[in-house]
Design a protein around this nucleic acid. Structure first.
Lengths: 195, 195
DNA sequence: TGACTCATGTAAGGCGTTACATGATTTT
DNA sequence: AAAATCATGTAACGCCTTACATGAGTCA
């Protein structure tokens, strides 16, 4: 069986603040974005379910007249239950490492590009997390912010680890390339020696 | 659209060595396990597809009489194409961080358990990677091993980052707990001062 | 012989994304 | 008035896992 953690994310987000489905998605993208994601196709059916079970209710209204969803007390209790359940780790799938593992067929240069891209992404993420960190420092939710900072810190550690690894890997790949390992099937380039 | 990277994993694994479907799964679990996973339900249909497209072929036979799958030259070419395609990163979903983000409703102690579990997992992974590393050093596939070591190194960096983060997080959570933040709804414990 | 491993598949179903459809409200 | 954004959904489809079904060979 797979995740079923969408409810946790939705109830959790609504526990911070009542929101419309649309705002919920934005909040998940922007605030949980570095470790979680949900799509409309998940959010709306889940909200409908939760409403029928009496875990959330509509409260009018935003400026447009549409209604925001808020946790009921049953919903708040259910959230605590869900949070206490052991986290389901979905099986690892890292496309970069998959390619790198078979990197011999690709050649050191193409692999280096792959690694450099990963490094760039990590660098951008680090920058994004820095902004989030200052945002969190200025938030009004003082009781929540220590926990939020924990998740930001996790992202930062992971990103810095990626960068450090990438630098090592790029060095390794450079020496591989210099030693004349072309991609699979290519004859070694004859390094002409100076007379 | 989602992954479609099963073919890459299957063709890649067969590029190292011809195998039966069963052995393929074992190989993916044991060797790619720390960054990739496939289930039987994916592997066999994929093998059937690839065979029909002439990218792999059956060659007899293991000791049991059943036949191993091997790459054709078309298959080898196709693998290079697939490897050159940009890696699809599937959206992040970290159950631990999801729970931690809403950790206020859970309380510092329960959160600390969560983090400690994550730390333990990382520690075990680090140990596993150490064995893999020595295995890889002794492999006959000298041309492949530099790339394999790159993926192992990535895992080690990630695991060490998790451990470092966990230690920080545990310290933070300890002070939160000491400051008397029980879980959501619980009154703060009155710390009696010594006269 | 019975239990275990190797080996190959199929079926059902959950999870999740993308694309489509629709309309109100706000901004330019 | 047109464009952009906010807002709510549905439908189709793909990916992937789990469980089931089956059988051959191996070892105690």
């Amino acid at each position: 069986m797979r995740a079923r953690q969408t409810r946790t994310a939705v109830l959790g987000a609504l526990s911070i603040q009542p929101m419309t489905g649309y705002a919920l998605r934005e909040a998940i993208r922007e605030t949980l974005g570095h470790f979680w994601s949900e799509s409309f196709g998940q959010i709306y059916p889940t909200l409908a379910e939760l409403e029928q079970e009496g875990l959330v209710e509509r409260r009018g209204g935003t400026r447009t007249g549409s209604s925001a969803f808020a946790l009921t007390s049953a919903g708040r209790a259910h959230l605590r239950t869900l949070l206490a359940e052991p986290p389901q780790a979905d099986p690892p799938r890292n496309g970069v490492l998959l390619r790198l593992f078979f990197g011999r067929a690709l050649g050191p240069e193409a692999c280096a590009e792959l690694v450099q891209d990963a490094r760039d992404r990590a660098e951008r993420q680090l920058a994004g997390l820095a902004t989030e960190r200052t945002d969190t420092d200025h938030t009004e939710h003082a009781d929540d912010s220590p926990y939020w900072l924990l998740t930001i810190s996790a992202g930062e550690h992971a990103a810095r680890a990626t960068i450090a690894w990438a630098d090592e890997a790029l060095a390794t790949l450079a020496t591989l390339a210099a030693d004349g390992h072309g991609h699979d099937g290519e004859p070694p380039t004859s390094t002409k020696e100076t007379p």
